[in-house]
Design a binder for these strands. Sequence first.
DNA 1: ATTTTCAAT
Length: 212
Amino acid sequence: HSFCSMLLPRKKFLYHYKNVRWARGRHETYLCFVVKRRVGPDTLTFDFGHLRNRNGCHVELLFLRYLGALCPGLWGYGAAGEKRLSYSITWFCSWSPCANCSIQLSQFLRNTPNLRLRIFVSRLYFCDMEDSLEREGLRMLSRAGVRISVMSYKDFFYCWQKFVDSKTSSFKAWEELHQNSVRLTRKLNRILQFFQSWDLEDLRDALKLLGL
DNA sequence: ATTTTCAAT
């Protein structure tokens, strides 16, 4: 695509996705995505790539702009409501969405039931205050059926393989990756006020990865 | 102990 170069430079990935407590200077947000078409119980990987925020537009809303091109037939072909295709999108974002993006996404998804969204985030954006709008936004997304998780080692590893110009260098975890991921996962669970259970698609992906 | 955040210069 013209709007998303295929591979992310290693340095950029490591700088922007590092789940450090004090993410000084991360004034950009990256979004790596996988689009899968759902055919009955099966999903076929259809497209992947990455985006970053531009011109004051948050990357999530930028993604929504490109959604029509990424998911042909999402809104049906020809006659209204006919032959709508179903898609699943998984994205990995360096920051969690701001309140406004969460609201926009929730509304969009309510009007597009044939689209499923699964979100992984490296860091939580403005979620320190108990009453922050960002926290409420995450709950809103959750209620709209989006499963949100904090990225763990396996997710960084996957992104390195899939989206990064890693050549032959293997992914090396930074100090504190695991601790930070655990801390942020606990924080997200407290925000969402319940423990999200496994879902079937995660299980299928895990089995596929193991070659089962 | 404390530090930042999809910038603005």
